[in-house]
Simulated scan of single mutants.
Amino acid sequence: MRAITITEFGDPAVLQLTEQPDPSPGSGEVLIDVASTSVNRADLMQRQGRYPPPPGASEILGLECAGTVAELGDGVTGFAVGDEVCALLAGGGYAERVAAPAGQVMPLPPEVDLVTAGGVPEVACTVWSTVVRHAGLAAGELLLVHGGSGGIGTHAIQVGRALGAQVATTASAQRLARCAELGAEVLIDYHDQDFAEQLAGRADVILDNMGAKYLARNLAALAPDGRLVV
């Protein structure tokens, strides 16, 4: 199979199209003929030598993909050869074929095409696990999404609105219009406005990708019994 590989760390010029052995599905795995994948920040960092893959994972870049099921490993049920799926990967998405644990493979709904689906698993799984499963966002609550114009942010805005929440977001001024199109109602330009002052004590859930430097202001923005997910 063909794959995008690297033999040294560096800028995009180190990416090479090479021939690699076809993977085989192990027990509990699904082999996927890849139709699309995406570029995540972790891929950029791995290419630069700043984000090594987990032990045992493929050295090939690519943390998600969409495609069709080519083969099923022992013990896999719920899928059939030819099914259109997307998958969350530990690596290997930048290739024509990849084997993924069946628990990380998801069937595509009819309205989602294979190209679009290649960029869904990372953001969808991140947002759903943090905002819904851990924080328990409910209808009528206020969700603050930091970095609303990025991959995680754009997905979180849409999930929040679909669940009936009011959504506030931080982004640069030129990107706030797109956030509004996706459903954000409270638009905060992080260059000129302080979200802690704007939302003081009103945010029920905050999805934060900034970490320590936002912690004090996140706490100031949280409502009583509010939930902060990082």
Rank of each mutant, 00 (worst) to 15 (best):
N209D: 08
V120C: 07
P53G: 05
A87F: 00
N209S: 14
V85M: 02
R50S: 10
A223S: 14
D43E: 15
G201Y: 13
D192A: 15
E71Q: 14
E71D: 13
G211Q: 07
A138I: 02
L143Q: 06
R133V: 14
T77W: 07
V145G: 07
Q48G: 11
G82K: 09
G148M: 04
P54W: 11
V30H: 07
A124C: 06
Q48N: 05
E29V: 01
L222H: 01
H134L: 15
Q193I: 12
G136D: 12
T154R: 15
F9M: 03
A102G: 11
V159R: 00
Q166P: 00
G73R: 04
G75Y: 02
G10W: 01
S24W: 01
E29S: 06
V186N: 12
S36D: 05
T7W: 09
T7F: 12
L182Y: 12
E19S: 14
K213G: 05
V186Y: 03
E64G: 02
D74L: 13
C65I: 13
A87G: 02
R50T: 01
D43P: 10
V115H: 11
E122Q: 12
G118P: 04
V131G: 00
G118R: 03
A196I: 10
D204E: 06
G160V: 08
S149R: 07
V105S: 08
D43F: 10
C86F: 07
A117T: 11
V205A: 03
G75P: 05
C179P: 09
L163M: 13
A223Q: 07
I157V: 14
Q48A: 15
T5M: 06
G49H: 01
D225L: 14
V132Q: 03
C86L: 12
N40A: 13
L108T: 05
A200W: 05
G153R: 02
G10T: 01
V98E: 00
V186C: 10
A99N: 10
L222P: 01
G26A: 14
T126V: 11
Y214D: 08
V229A: 11
V145F: 10
L187V: 07
G103E: 06
D192E: 13
Q48C: 05
Q166I: 13
R175K: 15
E181T: 14
R2I: 08
L215V: 12
V115N: 08
L137T: 03
T116L: 12
R41Q: 08
A3L: 10
I188T: 07
S38W: 03
L88Q: 03
A139I: 09
S24K: 13
S24L: 12
I206E: 04
E64V: 00
G67N: 09
A42G: 02
R161V: 13
D33W: 01
E96V: 04
Y190L: 11
F9G: 04
T154Y: 06
D11F: 08
P12A: 14
T68I: 11
V34N: 05
E122S: 04
Q166M: 08
G211E: 09
V229P: 02
P54F: 06
A180C: 11
H134M: 14
L61S: 01
M1Q: 10
G82A: 13
E29C: 04
I32L: 01
C125A: 14
A180T: 11
R217D: 15
T77D: 15
R202S: 14
T169P: 05
V127Q: 02
T18A: 15
A90M: 15
L222A: 06
N209W: 04
A35C: 05
V145W: 02
H146D: 04
D11Q: 09
G164Q: 09
A165P: 00
V230E: 10
A102I: 10
